[in-house]
Design a protein around this nucleic acid. Sequence first.
DNA 1: TAAAATTGGTTTAGTATTGGTACAAATAAG
DNA 2: CTTATTTGTACCAATACTAAACCAATTTTA
Lengths: 228, 228
Amino acid sequence: METNKKKLGALDISTRIRKEIFDGGIAFKEKLPAERVLADFYNVSRGTIRSALKHLEKDHYLTIKPGSGAVVSYERLKAIVSPVENANPLELIDARFAIEPHICRLAILHGKREHFKKLDDYMTLMEKNPDHTKEFAIADTNFHKTLAESTGNNLLIWIISQITAARDLPEWTKARNLTLNKDIVTLYNLQHRNILNALIAREPELAASAMKEHLETARLSLTRASGT
Amino acid sequence: METNKKKLGALDISTRIRKEIFDGGIAFKEKLPAERVLADFYNVSRGTIRSALKHLEKDHYLTIKPGSGAVVSYERLKAIVSPVENANPLELIDARFAIEPHICRLAILHGKREHFKKLDDYMTLMEKNPDHTKEFAIADTNFHKTLAESTGNNLLIWIISQITAARDLPEWTKARNLTLNKDIVTLYNLQHRNILNALIAREPELAASAMKEHLETARLSLTRASGT
DNA sequence: TAAAATTGGTTTAGTATTGGTACAAATAAG
DNA sequence: CTTATTTGTACCAATACTAAACCAATTTTA
């Protein structure tokens, strides 16, 4: 592959450096040698090197700062995005549908009094004013997180935290703004209260089905919003 | 891209130290040499060393305290190990109990013929010889993975892959060796067959309860093994 | 406890290095 | 030929590095 006698062009060099970044030869945040050094190394003029580096900067592989140098801005690990961030709202609802009803059952088995107290506090917050959809959304997230915490199962807590983290993503926020209104909030509050009551009454199946009903409502309002 | 003859810059030095921390050369909570010593060691001025250390502090690799020194605040293991790897087998079973029954329901909704074919292939493998517990364990993992894939929900697929990945960990392997024998394998095969039959018959609740029964058996054999 | 030594934090000014730019000549590609 | 790229050079501006001195927090020593 090496045509040693042949002079290298700007594109050849940018390809080489890009490969080296890909393979980890030059890692994230590492500094490239100075343009004059690279020119000497590749046996080309400085202008050619500059042209090559400009291409890489345009593709966000490098960050070039005058007087300072060129630094690798491409992070290999970050390129692998979490599936959570790629999931659409309906996929998330399906996942919650799988997990949260059973979380209710486990909450009754392992939940402490302080967890139920915390859940009640969040309920009070949500019921305070059905018009404040933003505050409702935050308290809602905390409600479901606390519910997961009450199971004492770190794996489930982690999964729910991953899922709820997605609610801060732009796509989800947009969907929420479309669906949340005073009537929906009032309905959600009623359903949350049903869940909490079933938990306190130590009725696992009642709590689970109350959760299913809640998630079914959420799914419906979501499909209705995207359908119109 | 090592230009060893050249004088080192702040970024070069921060890269070197970061690598040493990452490779465990300087352990968690260990103290770095004084800035003046490092300056002498790297043959640069103290300002350059300070600049390098500041970068590392910004990335939470170090904690610098005036008058006292710079201490490694980056915990290598904690950064790599995911919550899944810290979960114990019983927590994993609970999580699977939450998720997999509903996966059965979704598999009936979204599963294609090729998925069921693949499931049947793994069944054949598992039924081939109940004595080969090692091959059984691998096919078992693939069975549950394929089941998740048949839902078409990337989030659920990812969660299950995370959970099944934990089965290769020492703790889980140990527990499996304690519980798996010919009788258990035969029972598991029967239960797997029940699940698959329910899927093919398009009976969501039947499939879900077959899965619950399967996981209940797994949980029982696990507690029995740790109880003796 | 008090003094001394060590360590990081800061400032200052001078020097060296680096990327940014411009332009004419040489080379390559079509 | 024409056109585009590369080259070589010189200079500018931004940034990094050096060196020295002093301050403030902490640790060590007596």
